[in-house]
C-alpha cells in the first residue's frame, strides 16, 4: 500500500467543491490537497462543513459542483460508498459504529481486506495468514483479551479503538477519521493520538477534531474550515495566531 505513494502526487484532491442543502451552503468552493503519507488535521467550529466534506469524499453525498479526485486520476463523484471503500478510502464515524451483535474478532474479520462479492462471502473460508492478520490488529488495538466478547459490551473508548482497528485491517490508502477523541479520557486521548501517528507511517490520514490538545499531540499540518471553505492552513502554532481564526473561534 505504501509503495504506491511514490507514483502519485496527491492522494486526495478537492477543487471548487460546493454543496447546498435547501439554500444553505454546507460546503462552499472547498479546495484541499492531501499528499501521500500525510497526516492532516482538520478543525473548525460546528457547522463548518466537516462532516459534509467527509460525506462527499466517501460518496455518501454528491457535490453540486467541483472535483473530488483520488490518487490523481479517480473521480470519486462517479462512485458510491462501497466502491470508494474498495478503492482504498476508509472512514471512521464520529459516533463509534461497530457491529454490536458480533464479537470483536468477527468485527475485524468482516472488515478484513478481501473480496466483497456476495457469493465469495457465502463460501468464504479464513486462511491461516488472514487469521494471523486479525490477531495482529487485535494486539495493535489492545483488545486480545476481549476477542470473543460481543462488541456491544465494550466501553466507549474500546469501541473507538475497535473501529480504528477495523479501518486499518481494511488496508486503505487514505483514512478519514471523524472526532476520534470525542468522549475519551485524557489518557485514552493521548493513546489514540499515538495510535494515529503510528498508522500515518503507512497510510495517509485525515483527522477531523475539536480537541486542541489532541491536535497538538498529532503534531501535523492543520486546515481550518469555516462556513464550508478553507480559512487557514499550516502548522498549529501558526494557525492559532491567525487573526481570522481567532475571530471565528471566539465568535468576535
Amino acid at each position: 500500500m505504501t509503495q504506491a505513494h511514490s507514483a502519485v502526487k496527491s492522494i486526495l484532491y478537492l477543487n471548487g467543491v460546493t454543496k447546498t442543502f435547501d439554500g444553505f451552503k454546507a460546503i462552499n468552493n472547498l479546495c484541499l490537497d492531501i499528499r501521500p503519507g500525510e497526516l492532516r488535521a482538520i478543525i473548525g467550529p460546528n457547522g463548518a462543513g466537516k462532516t459534509t466534506m467527509m460525506d462527499i469524499i466517501t460518496g455518501k453525498t454528491k457535490p453540486d459542483v467541483g472535483e473530488v479526485v483520488f490518487r490523481d486520476s479517480i473521480d470519486l463523484t462517479q462512485h458510491d460508498e462501497a466502491d470508494i471503500a474498495n478503492l482504498g478510502i476508509g472512514r471512521k464515524f464520529q459516533k463509534p459504529t461497530v457491529i454490536e451483535s458480533l464479537s470483536v474478532w468477527e468485527n475485524l474479520e468482516l472488515a478484513l481486506a478481501g473480496k466483497r462479492n456476495v457469493f465469495q462471502t457465502l463460501f468464504f473460508r479464513l486462511t491461516q495468514a488472514q487469521a494471523h492478520r486479525v490477531d495482529e490488529i487485535l494486539a495493535l488495538i489492545g483488545l486480545p483479551a476481549r476477542r470473543d466478547d460481543l462488541a456491544r459490551n465494550l466501553s466507549h473508548g474500546q469501541k473507538q479503538w475497535l473501529e480504528i482497528g477495523m479501518l486499518i485491517i481494511q488496508a486503505p490508502q487514505l483514512l478519514l477519521v471523524d472526532e476520534p477523541a470525542a468522549g475519551m479520557t485524557d489518557y485514552e486521548t493521548m493513546e489514540t493520538a499515538k495510535l494515529l501517528k503510528n498508522i500515518s507511517k503507512d497510510h495517509s490520514v485525515v483527522v477531523v477534531e475539536h480537541d486542541m490538545e489532541f491536535i497538538r499531540a498529532l503534531d501535523s499540518r492543520v486546515t481550518v474550515l469555516h462556513e464550508g471553505s478553507v480559512l487557514a492552513e499550516g502548522r498549529l502554532d501558526v494557525v492559532q495566531k491567525d487573526q481570522r481564526v481567532i475571530d471565528v473561534y471566539l465568535g468576535r
Partner: peptide, 19 residues
C-alpha cells in the same frame, strides 16, 4: 455476518466496502 452487520449498522457496512 455481513447480514447482521447490515442489520446493525447499514452505512458502516457500506463504508467497509460491502455492496
Amino acid at each position: 455476518r455481513v447480514l447482521v452487520s447490515i442489520r446493525d449498522a447499514e452505512s458502516r457496512t457500506r463504508f467497509m466496502g460491502y455492496r
